[in-house]
Amino acid sequence: MTAQTETDLADLKARHPHLFERPAAARLGVPTIALAALALFIYGLIELDFSPQRIMAGLSQLGWFALLMIPPDPGSSLPAYLSAMGETLSIALLGTTLAALMALPVSLLAARNIIPTQLIRFPVRRFLDGVRGIDTLIWALVWINVVGLGPFAGVLAIAVSDFGAFGKLFSEAIETADRKQVEGVRASGGSALHEIRFGLMPQVLPVIAGQVLYFIESNTRSATIIGIVGAGGIGLQLAEQIRVLEWQKVSFLILMILVAVAAIDWISTRLRFAIIGKRAIA
């Protein structure tokens, strides 16, 4: 039995040499990349001032903070926190809707099957890339310069930065739409606008609605942080309480955010199921 296995092995080696003796490049490739990645990682740790003392000191500090956080307690500021949370949800909802409304016409311009010429599509796409490359917090700072401190600046910041993301996602949804239904509308004598309205939109709208709902959910998270730079919502309260080391209030605020995000998550998942149908997602 053993002898047979050995001859089999020799036979297999003779027939498939490339499986037994892989070229040096293939064998050394992965370890080299891993080593380079590790070296860069260690260089990063040194360059960014990591030291065992600092880590230990920081961890013991964090341990203290964690102890001081229990139990979560809003003190007397519960009404203020609830209204700040409402503000955050409003910012997310309004910002996302505005972004979707602005992005829909622009995404048509960026879709290959609507605008065949590269002349318009290319600049529109690069413009969307540029808008997307700037973080929501930076947009919030810019809008604060324009409309002043407060939640309205937050709405506009989310609207603009999501406009870039939606423009790209919508145009991709439009490009993957089926050509045949558009042709059907044209064959029955429809105009170009009819083609978009009756051939394209019925296919694209459910996808877009799903994406918008998903973004409302993720924007609830973004809306919690734009308050840090002064653009309204619960982030303002959170940043303040962290700075004055009111850890019980901080943990209460974080719990509020977790609950709110989970609730929005639940609602938007339900709505998405209702719009696209259960099977499309699962």
């Binding site: 960014l48 001032d49 600092r54 880590i55 000191a57 920081g58 961890l59 500090q61 964090l62 903070f65 917090l137 998270r221 973004s222 919690t224 942080i225 840090i228 982030g235 959170l238 940043a239 962290i242 700075r243 080391l245 901080v250 974080i254 955010i257 977790l258 995000v261 989970a262």
Partner: peptide, 18 residues
């Protein structure tokens, strides 16, 4: 769920600026 910048706010206090 807790945004990274919120962690950063806390860590800046615990580990120092940087």
């Amino acid at each position: 769920t807790v945004p990274d910048i919120v962690f950063a706010l806390v860590f800046v206090i615990a580990f120092g600026l940087g």
